[in-house]
Amino acid sequence: MTEIPVKISFATRLRNSFLTGVLILAPVTITMWLVWTFLQWVDSWVKPYIPARYDPEQYFDVAIPGFGLLVAVIGITLIGFLGNNLIGKWIVGVGESVLNHMPFVRPIYKSIKQLFESVLKEHSSSFKKVGLIEFPSPGTWAMVFVASDATGEMAYRFNEIGQEMVAVFLPPTPVPTAGFLLFVPKDKIIMLDMSPEDGAKLLISGGLVAPDFTPKTAVEPVPDQSSS
């Protein structure tokens, strides 16, 4: 029996074309707006401190977006370079010693420094792995970002009950900026091969944008022994 093709009305085609255009333009437009807003924000902080003779806008009479960001990146890199030599380390040590002796400033500085060290240091394993845990009930699985093994008092308390626990971050969909810090037994986590970036895409899209996956080891077929 020949199937009769379904005719699509002009209004439906027009709506589909509009939605396709939104899907194409919205991510590009929002990304460009965020980048432009970030550049303007950095420039508004950095440019007032740049001497006029070093500002190219004084010579070309044209606003150069991102020049403040470029200066900030170069300045931060130079500070990091100086901080790696002996004189720089001594200066940093003196500055930290002063901050550590200030009653109200010390806890704030130590907390912020510990946070940045745990995130930015090369040896840090924070949120470099993605896993699955049973949540909120057995048989239901949720994707988490693995932070690190339990440390400090948390590790001590877990060792008392004979449990090796891992700290994981369970973000909601589609906004991963908030979530839950959970301590899960290490043997209860199914580790995934996907990167945290791919995990974030999967999370934000509500499961619609799944990363490509190729098993590391393919299952070899069982040879047919009936003919032997």
Rank of each mutant, 00 (worst) to 15 (best):
Q114L: 03
E197G: 11
F18Y: 15
E96D: 07
T2I: 13
L99F: 15
L203T: 01
L115Q: 08
M143L: 08
T217A: 14
M1F: 10
T77I: 07
K110S: 05
W90A: 11
P215K: 00
K188C: 11
K201H: 12
E122H: 13
V209Q: 12
V71D: 01
A52Y: 13
G131H: 01
L208I: 15
D55R: 09
G207T: 04
S118N: 11
D61C: 01
F67L: 07
S227D: 09
E153I: 14
F38Y: 14
L39I: 01
F145K: 00
A218S: 09
V92K: 13
L69Q: 08
S226Q: 03
P221F: 10
P174N: 05
F183C: 05
V22K: 02
W36I: 00
W36N: 11
Y109I: 01
K129T: 11
V28R: 01
I190Q: 10
A63S: 14
K113W: 13
P27A: 02
F183D: 04
P138W: 03
F213W: 08
G93W: 09
E122T: 14
L203K: 01
G179T: 04
L19W: 06
W33A: 15
W90H: 06
F104G: 15
R15C: 10
L202T: 06
G131E: 06
P27R: 00
F81W: 14
E57D: 11
V46D: 08
W90V: 08
G152N: 02
L203H: 05
Y49C: 04
V119F: 11
D61G: 05
E197K: 13
P172S: 14
G131W: 02
G207D: 09
Y109W: 08
D149F: 10
V6T: 06
L182P: 00
S111G: 01
G131S: 06
S44K: 13
